[in-house]
Design a protein around this nucleic acid. Structure first.
Length: 417
RNA sequence: GUGGGCGUAGCUCAGUUGGCUAGAGCGCCAGGUUGUGGUCCUGGAGGUCGCGGGUUCAAGCCCCGUCGUCCACCCCA
């Protein structure tokens, strides 16, 4: 039994997954940088106060925060998400708007772990600060859709809603509270508790006994201000014009209190477990001001790496990238030749690996196979004396003997470049 | 945080109503008559049966606790 294992809700990402993660982030970077987004790398922990602005009825703030006091007596927290950090950075640096940034990295929430729900989990995402235009809402959403397309995912459904401006949201919360309160006894115990904290969240309940009351609940759409309503309409028509399919779901609430107006969520239809939400986002027009900055509109989304990859697995798309090892050196002379051959090939830009410990040729060939190499360079005592090497193609098994000092040229040829 | 299932070799799992040195497949290692992998054959290494108590003549199998994991709720990516 090993003495140590990873802490609950954390895990090692090892081959072949680690390379897959990296290419996931690379594909994301390609998509968003082509749209003018610049990379931002905020710190992984910040003053606790930054995250408290996310909302006092938000559970990731009230009970899931990884917060602690550091040696200097500062109250800090591991970031539960990155939107608040980006807004803090905006206030701190005051870049010209529109400020379009993207990020990738881990976040931390003290939750009970489950598949697709970890205490350290990775997200990629974008944020745009300083633009009110509904055109932008549609563009941001389309960017996520394009990213899913690049991954090869097909079973992704986009849900869309508007939470209105802060006044609308408060008004709606009051109306909902009244509705559910009059039928209090019919609600599940859990929902009764939720009702106290945040009436909107009751709409999220998956408990069957709440279904009827939720279906009969008043609609957000009826509480929208004229400005918010026309913004929502504009977003929808921009999406339609861009060929982005969506479903309006006026029960879509989302967990973070700072959302205003446009909110959206991506659900994988290929996932069977409970955690089918693979991404989400929306507007947070008041957040920058909350953090002490000028009144600045903002919108963004975050996509979960783990869950999106689970969806990829379910659809059999976006597998791990192939090995970078093209050539494997099999040295049966006792290992005297392999080092120089590797150095030479690697310097020529050819991915090369070798075996150690003077293993049998058979064993070394096996390693060559496992490494995924296209070519094996075989050197025995005969070849060493003759100053030659054998180039063997792993797939067909054909071999040729070439001069040792012309190795790179012949390997290039055999690789077809 | 609440409720439930599970926890046996690196991996996926068998282990009958508790009974002698705990098994399989895959993987790994070594061979298959002097140098060459992916198929096949043979052999081998590897397990304090999550951990700690308890019941029993005897526990991988029963009981309690604990840790981990999975599922649902919750929450959300």
């Amino acid at each position: 039994m090993p003495s140590f294992a990873t802490s609950p809700g954390t895990r090692d990402i090892i081959a072949p997954d680690a390379a897959r993660w990296r290419s996931f982030q690379q594909v994301f970077a390609d998509v968003v940088e082509a749209a003018g987004f610049a990379h931002i790398i905020p710190p992984m922990f910040e003053d606790l106060g930054v995250f408290l602005r996310v909302g006092e009825t938000t559970e990731i703030v009230t009970k899931e925060m990884y917060d602690f006091e550091d040696k200097g007596g500062r109250r800090v927290a591991l970031r539960p998400e990155q939107t608040a950090s980006v807004c803090r950075a905006f206030v701190e640096h005051r870049p010209v708007t529109p400020w379009k940034v993207w990020y990738a990295g881990p976040n931390f929430r003290y939750e009970k772990p489950q598949q697709g729900r970890y205490r350290q989990f990775d997200q990629v995402g974008v944020e745009v600060l300083g633009v009110d235009d509904p055109q932008l809402d549609a563009e941001v959403i389309a960017l996520a859709v394009e990213f899913y397309r690049r991954l090869g995912l097909r079973g992704v459904q986009l849900s869309l809603n508007s939470l209105g401006d802060s006044g609308d949201r408060d008004r709606y919360a009051a109306v909902l509270l009244a509705h559910f309160s009059t039928h209090r006894d019919a609600l599940s115990a859990e929902s009764r508790a939720t009702l106290e904290r945040n009436p909107l969240r009751v709409l999220d309940s998956k408990r069957p006994e709440d279904a009827a009351l939720i279906a009969a609940a008043p609609r957000m759409a009826d509480q929208l201000s004229e400005a918010a309503a026309s913004h929502f309409v504009a977003v929808q028509s921009a999406l339609l014009a861009g060929g982005v399919g969506f479903v309006v779901n006026d029960r879509l609430v989302r967990g973070l209190d700072y959302y205003r107006r446009t909110t959206f969520e991506f659900v994988s239809t290929s996932l069977v477990a409970a955690h089918t939400a693979i991404g989400g986002g929306g507007r947070y027009d008041g957040l920058v001001a909350e953090l002490g900055g000028p009144d600045t509109p903002g919108i963004g989304f975050a996509l979960g790496l783990d869950r999106t990859l689970l969806a990829c697995d379910a659809e059999g798309v976006f597998g791990a990238p192939a090995s970078r090892v093209e050539v494997f050196v099999v040295d049966a002379t006792g290992g005297s030749e392999a080092g120089a051959v590797c150095t030479e090939l690697r310097a020529a830009g050819i991915g090369t690996d070798r075996a150690y410990d003077n293993r049998s040729m058979k064993a070394q060939m096996k390693s060559a196979d496992r490494a995924g190499a296209r070519l094996a360079i075989i050197i025995g005592d005969d070849e060493r004396s003759a100053k030659t090497v054998i180039i063997r193609t792993m797939e067909g098994g054909s071999q040729q003997t070439v001069q040792r000092d012309a190795l790179v040229t012949h390997v290039r040829q055999a690789l077809g470049r």
